[in-house]
Amino acid sequence: MGRYVVRRLLQAIPVLLGTTFLIFTLVYWLPGDPIQALAGDRAVDPVFRATMREMFHLDEPLVVQYGYYIQGILSGDFGTTFRGLPVSTIFEGKFQITLNLAMMALVIEAIVGIGLGLIAALRRGKAADTAILAFTLLLVSIPTLVSGFVLQLVLGLQLKTSTGIDFFPVAGTSEGWRSYLLPGIVLAGTSIAYLTRLTRTSLMETLRADYVRTAVAKGMPRRRVLGRHALRNSLIPLVTYLGADLGTLMSGAVITETIFNLNGIGRQLVDSVYLSENSVVVGIVTVLVLIFIAANLIVDLLYAVLDPRIRYE
């Protein structure tokens, strides 16, 4: 186990260096003048420009600039905003909102996705299975962009006007955990579909496995065969999928936060893009990518805990 963890941690280092370098190279190569962007639409004083280029090491070669960038990341410096504040101050409060949203989506995804997947697998080929598969097809096909607005309209407003039920706040975070309910459902949408299908195939595969047949041959009651022997094995890919999905959900929260006016880092990203505040954009993307990589790393370690074949490698 120890060796596996160390090896996996070491493997993560080149990926971290590689992705940050990739992001940095994109910034370096792509058109767009960072100083001009800093000044907005006003003309830039040449002296100021020279000072800034010096200050941000813009005249150094790519690799040297990358060195400064990495040095910054390691010391928690993700760049500077418009007003000269460190990008990291922007995360205060906003990070929590995005994390809340992603967690809400994850909980919804786990309950609905695993639940539907189990039903589908146990009723394989029956009407319930077909209906659930069709439902996942629909879920995958409706982009967040669409489901966000439609649910806002139907659940948030029409439900209130027609029945008086005001359960789903449609914007902001003033209502505590309920504020995250509707955006959570929207954000979870596609993931629910994937998790449902993964659960279905995973359980169907384990149900066909020889060791499940052995459990039946041992005279174990059906409940125990399913609940202990089959489920324990089919859960492994599901738990790892969910873990990795936390990173995906956080980085995918951009649209959902925009639609539901949640003041998280996704929305901040969009605002910064709109204001051409590229240093903030790069800073936020870097953080999200790091979270994404970290989530995948944690999942791999989790895998080892769940599957003894890897634990004792």
């Binding site: 060791y211 041959a217 041992k218 005279g219 009651p221 059906r222 022997h229 094995n233 599957d307």
Partner: peptide, 28 residues
């Protein structure tokens, strides 16, 4: 019935399978 049969399976009639690696549950 299925319940009666599962009482016999394993207790009165038992079975050994060809490939023990796949016939044993890997996580227990």
């Amino acid at each position: 019935s299925e319940a009666q049969r599962s009482q016999i399976r394993g207790q009165q009639i038992a079975m050994i399978f060809q490939d023990a690696l796949s016939a044993l549950n890997p996580v227990f």
